[in-house]
Amino acid sequence: MEGNIFQKYPKNDRSNLIAMLQDLQEVYGYLPEEEIRKVADHIGMSVSGVYGVATFYNQFRLTPLGKNIIRVCRGTACHVKNSANILTALENELGICAGQTTRDKLFTLETVACMGACSIAPVININDDYYGRVTVKEIPKILNKYKKQEQAVSIE
């Protein structure tokens, strides 16, 4: 699958850089270092140049994603409803900062600008589930649900 990406794009053509990175992220879920080096070699750019582009855009990730992706809305309405506290609570509970993944690879914590659900602010979203009017107190309970799911899977 990954091999096709390198065949798909001509060598030494820098204009395909972003498309290539997107395709690779599609395959790996993030951009592994090894692949970034291969891309640089393929399109004839320095590794630092490709790394620079990969870090410039928010859409690219340089670390693998966790199993569950938590998105905390930091839009205006949620901000007014104290989403900063929600984020801090999640960071404390998971022991990571926004943008990072827990060591057990179970959770990735991200912030987003607005989910369009301002009426139920503050909002967080975990995978396909949305949680509105979230309070700091609820956070451990919400996270436990996903931890339990993981345990159930591992017992099976």
Binding site: S48, T55, F56
Partner: peptide, 15 residues
């Protein structure tokens, strides 16, 4: 580094 020496060891990252 990039244009004169053509090494490319450093570049801008993040934003």
């Amino acid at each position: 580094c990039n244009e004169i020496q053509k090494i490319g060891a450093i570049d801008f990252t993040n934003r």
